[in-house]
Simulated scan of single mutants.
Amino acid sequence: MDHEFARCFTKDLDSLAKEVELCNEEILWLVLPGITNSIGNLTQHLIGNLNHFIGATLGETGYVRNREREFAEAYLTKTEMIAKITETSAMLEQVIGSLTELDLLKKFPYETFGYEMTTGHMITKLASHLGYHLGQINYMRRISTN
């Protein structure tokens, strides 16, 4: 099924890859005053988040997430980060593209936010989360390069 959700994620992940591409290694890991995370840490977080909740949970990819590491370490180079974004995008297209309308109405396996929700609702939350951090990354990059 060619799903709108997959197109939404693909568009935003393409934008994320472009943002990372525009950063040098210093800016990628720069933590601006009054900000808690770097562009690199937020990008690692988005890669981990999507691979966990969509890849491992819905697509049974076997991905094992280490959320704390996403924020605590600079474990991906810029080149690796862009490659992981591309891999994540391909995974999303495959997993989300395989979901049926009935799958989207099923209960999502985790109560991540303390309440039950459908898989479709969780995918919407994940798309919103990606967009939120993408906006932060865009502003952080522009502030850091001026």
Score class of each variant (00 low, 15 high):
residue 2 D to R: 08
residue 2 D to P: 09
residue 4 E to G: 04
residue 5 F to I: 00
residue 5 F to R: 00
residue 6 A to W: 09
residue 7 R to I: 02
residue 8 C to W: 00
residue 9 F to P: 00
residue 9 F to S: 00
residue 10 T to F: 00
residue 10 T to I: 00
residue 11 K to Q: 01
residue 13 L to P: 02
residue 15 S to L: 11
residue 15 S to E: 08
residue 16 L to R: 05
residue 16 L to Y: 06
residue 16 L to M: 12
residue 19 E to I: 14
residue 19 E to R: 12
residue 19 E to N: 09
residue 20 V to D: 03
residue 21 E to A: 14
residue 21 E to D: 15
residue 22 L to G: 09
residue 23 C to P: 02
residue 26 E to H: 05
residue 28 L to I: 10
residue 31 V to Y: 15
residue 32 L to Q: 15
residue 34 G to E: 03
residue 35 I to H: 12
residue 35 I to W: 11
residue 37 N to D: 11
residue 39 I to A: 02
residue 40 G to A: 12
residue 40 G to E: 03
residue 41 N to T: 14
residue 41 N to Y: 07
residue 42 L to H: 03
residue 44 Q to C: 14
residue 44 Q to F: 10
residue 45 H to W: 07
residue 46 L to W: 07
residue 47 I to M: 11
residue 48 G to Y: 11
residue 49 N to S: 09
residue 50 L to W: 02
residue 52 H to R: 14
residue 53 F to D: 10
residue 53 F to M: 11
residue 54 I to Q: 04
residue 54 I to W: 03
residue 55 G to I: 10
residue 55 G to L: 11
residue 57 T to Q: 14
residue 58 L to S: 06
residue 59 G to D: 13
residue 60 E to Q: 09
residue 60 E to L: 06
residue 60 E to W: 03
residue 60 E to N: 08
residue 61 T to W: 10
residue 61 T to N: 09
residue 62 G to W: 12
residue 65 R to G: 12
residue 66 N to G: 11
residue 67 R to P: 10
residue 67 R to I: 08
residue 69 R to Q: 13
residue 69 R to Y: 08
residue 69 R to N: 11
residue 70 E to W: 09
residue 72 A to K: 15
residue 73 E to F: 14
residue 74 A to E: 13
residue 74 A to L: 12
residue 75 Y to D: 13
residue 77 T to P: 04
residue 78 K to C: 13
residue 78 K to S: 12
residue 79 T to K: 09
residue 80 E to G: 04
residue 80 E to F: 02
residue 81 M to V: 07
residue 81 M to W: 09
residue 82 I to F: 02
residue 84 K to H: 12
residue 84 K to G: 03
residue 85 I to H: 07
residue 86 T to I: 06
residue 86 T to C: 03
residue 88 T to S: 14
residue 90 A to K: 12
residue 90 A to S: 13
residue 91 M to C: 03
residue 92 L to S: 01
residue 93 E to H: 04
residue 97 G to C: 09
residue 98 S to G: 13
residue 100 T to E: 15
residue 101 E to C: 13
residue 103 D to G: 13
residue 103 D to P: 12
residue 104 L to I: 05
residue 105 L to E: 14
residue 105 L to P: 05
residue 106 K to E: 15
residue 113 F to W: 14
residue 114 G to E: 15
residue 115 Y to C: 12
residue 116 E to G: 13
residue 116 E to D: 15
residue 117 M to F: 07
residue 119 T to L: 11
residue 120 G to H: 04
residue 124 T to K: 04
residue 125 K to G: 05
residue 125 K to P: 01
residue 126 L to W: 00
residue 130 L to E: 04
residue 131 G to V: 00
residue 133 H to C: 03
residue 134 L to K: 04
residue 135 G to D: 02
residue 136 Q to I: 01
residue 136 Q to C: 04
residue 139 Y to D: 05
residue 141 R to K: 14
residue 141 R to F: 11
residue 142 R to A: 05
residue 143 I to A: 06
residue 146 N to R: 07
